[in-house]
Design a protein around this nucleic acid. Structure first.
Lengths: 335, 335
DNA sequence: CTGAAAGCGCTTACAG
DNA sequence: CTGAAAGCGCTTACAG
């Protein structure tokens, strides 16, 4: 590819001048500017980004670290992030960590060395937070409330409310015994949802029931079997998320339970899948796209020091579909 | 972060020497080497990658351009690619193009300007091929046979065979009227599968039936309705892929058809989802992970000029699950 | 307004 | 074996 020196030569000016017209960074005599513009046009010259990244200490790269891009939730998030990054002229570097702390650490360091501008963390390693802080690279953490690191921005959905409304729906639909599948205890999302569940039980004067479960499909398979053993008379289940709900559904069908007739089921996230499967999943929507976009915007604001720290909590809402009874009634809000 | 000059100063050597011990690129006096090593150790010095990228004209970045990361097939592919890239010490830059040719073109150009080393294309724009060629950046094209561009490496599954075995399975399971959902005509994968289907029909002396359909879930919804109208007596359907199969399944259920009792259904790809839904999807497996990894390896070979061009066609195989009758029989190969 | 110079942080001929 | 110098391709003080 052609370089700025050659463009300068062809236009009869210095490289500095070419740089200035290209970046609009200083006034340039109209005639010279036009000559430069013409040469740029003719040659199709585009500045080398590696050189810029070096000088500016900014590669216009945002790194994203996800535990598993294969997981629809992260995946949809990544899509939103990529789109928003692109619109702001940032590139996205993807690290799929598989919860491998070493890989995550390595990637963060690499990002710093590449002069990346910021990092979006969809992972859950305290270690990472320390590293990021030490490296002084702007960061936003998603789907997790970060309290120990004062200067981190975090973005999450209203999990407490999600825990409330998912159980509330089931009670309203006539469930007497609702089992809440509690997510990993080290995640704020799990704890908040559980709190929401407890509070709504208290409000309805109902004894809470729960079981522990991870956020993966496989976790759901295991936990569902446990539920069947431990709570054979359960008539409602709040799954830890949509993937888990799919596992629960499969297990229920295998055990000849009908959904929603015998047991009603609510997921969490409203990943695209939840609408694609049959029956369609009733679930609590997290506004994944909006959250992903906000993450990028917040990060860019932080990069540009154009905004003081603001965390965001996004509203959730129930999407009633086919795994709860409501949907066969008239007041179904199925979209 | 600390720079090579400071390390040099601390170790009492020149930056060149630090570079040499760091890269093992020339012999260095043992004592000096140790001093350098110690300083590196103590300071945690890591070379700046932007500077390296500039000098070496290589950022150790691989770009990947996918139409839609949100689509499980691309998504699983991206995961495999990321993993293999990481193991070979390359970074992955992600572009989700949404089939936006402008965005794709822009990203390819950007990759070049970032001194990226190669590109993996999971998209289908002739324009892109021209651009990539003009920019002389190593490329591998996936899921598509590229014949007009002699020097491109391509990697795909054996779609012809896939078209054969999917229909063959249905015939063997007793289907009399199998409808093949033919994918987009501009894709070699679609054409080859269709050819396979035609050939197997001929072999069995059966009249072929088909309908056109895209590769997206929404396409499947439409096409399924058409099938029901056009071929009310169909008893087997080969969907253009797993996402489409899910759409077909939903439509069939809505029309009170039982699967596999009334109609048997086969997908394509064997995305993880196909095993997660209920009933589990019978499908033709593409070895997505192996293909993704091979793409990276082939690309790296090309980058290093260490291998002459080799295209790869990966074998496919039937995975019998619950949407075909076989699975209830004794010879079920459900894994 | 504009060019020459210095510099971003490395790496590699080039001498010695 | 090793350092000083030049260079990767830009950008931005600094002079004028």
């Amino acid at each position: 590819m052609i370089s700025i020196r050659e463009v300068a030569k062809m236009a009869g000016v210095s490289p500095a001048t070419v740089s200035r017209v290209m970046n609009g960074t200083a006034k340039v005599n109209a005639e010279k500017r036009n000559r430069v513009l013409r040469v740029i046009e003719e040659t199709g010259f585009k500045p080398n980004e590696a050189a810029r990244a070096l000088y500016r200490r900014s590669a216009r790269i945002i790194g994203i670290i996800v535990p598993n891009i294969d997981n629809p939730f992260f995946n949809e998030m990544a899509k939103a992030i990529e789109e928003e990054a692109y619109q702001n002229d940032y590139r996205l570097t993807l690290c799929n960590s598989d919860n491998d702390a070493k890989k995550e650490l390595h990637n963060i360091e690499l990002l710093k060395r590449m002069n990346a501008d910021g990092i979006i963390l969809l992972t859950n390693e305290e270690q990472l937070f320390h590293k990021v802080k030490e490296l002084r690279i702007p960061v936003v953490v998603m789907d997790r409330e970060v309290t120990d690191f004062q200067d981190f921005i975090y973005i999450e959905a209203d999990h407490y409310e999600g825990g409330r409304i998912s159980a509330q729906l089931l009670f309203e639909q006539g469930c007497k015994k609702v089992v809440h599948m509690r997510g990993p205890g080290n995640l704020s999302s799990s704890r908040k949802r559980f709190d929401g569940y407890l509070d709504i039980c208290q409000k309805y004067h109902i004894t809470p029931h729960y079981i522990d479960c991870g956020y993966h499909y496989e976790d759901g398979l295991q936990a569902a079997t446990q539920i069947l053993e431990k709570f054979p008379d359960a008539d409602g289940i709040v799954a830890s998320n949509d993937m888990v709900a799919l596992a629960v559904y499969k297990t229920l069908v295998q055990n000849e339970k009908q959904v929603p007739k015998d047991i009603q089921l609510v997921g969490f996230d409203n990943i695209r899948l939840s609408e694609i499967v049959t029956p369609e999943l009733t679930t609590v929507e997290q506004p994944i796209d909006a959250m992903g976009r906000q993450a990028v915007r917040s990060l860019i604001n932080r990069i540009n020091r154009t905004e003081t720290k603001t965390n965001h909590t996004f509203p959730v809402r129930i999407i009633e579909r086919e795994t709860t009874k409501s949907c066969s009634e008239s007041h179904c809000s199925n979209r």
